[in-house]
């Protein structure tokens, strides 16, 4: 089990148990519904989706924190939002500098 996942779940459970509930580290639950809806149950993470301790998962990266919950093909809206805003920021800042240049020259 990836120790990072255990820590993350412990952190989340500490927040949930802020009213004095006991801190129990359990197997991380998977978020089966996309886009942050509350999971209807708490399925466990299979050994196929969790990286070996200390190793880089094939096709993934250490510290992955989705708990293997996001179905393939989903979430493109977030991906496009990130890339479009990234390019708009670069273009916008370049435009701002060009305007400043014109104003001061």
């Amino acid at each position: 089990m990836n120790p990072w996942i255990l820590l993350s779940v412990a952190h989340a459970q500490e927040a949930e148990n802020a009213d004095g509930g006991e801190d129990v580290v359990e197997t991380p639950s998977a978020q089966t519904e996309p886009f942050g809806e509350a999971p209807s149950e708490a399925p466990t993470v299979s050994s196929e989706t969790v990286a070996d301790p200390g190793g880089i998962p094939e096709g993934g990266f250490i510290g992955n924190d989705s708990y293997g919950a996001i179905p393939l093909g989903s979430g493109w809206g977030y991906v496009w939002a990130v890339y479009i805003v990234t390019w708009l920021t670069m273009l916008g800042y370049a435009g701002y500098l060009a305007l400043r240049n014109r104003k001061t020259s």
């Binding site: 096709g59 993934g60 992955n64 996001i70 393939l72 093909g73 979430g75």
Partner: peptide
């Protein structure tokens, strides 16, 4: 696609 997150990765 990232092996756990899929395309969000």
């Amino acid at each position: 696609p990232e092996f756990m997150m899929g395309d969000v990765g």
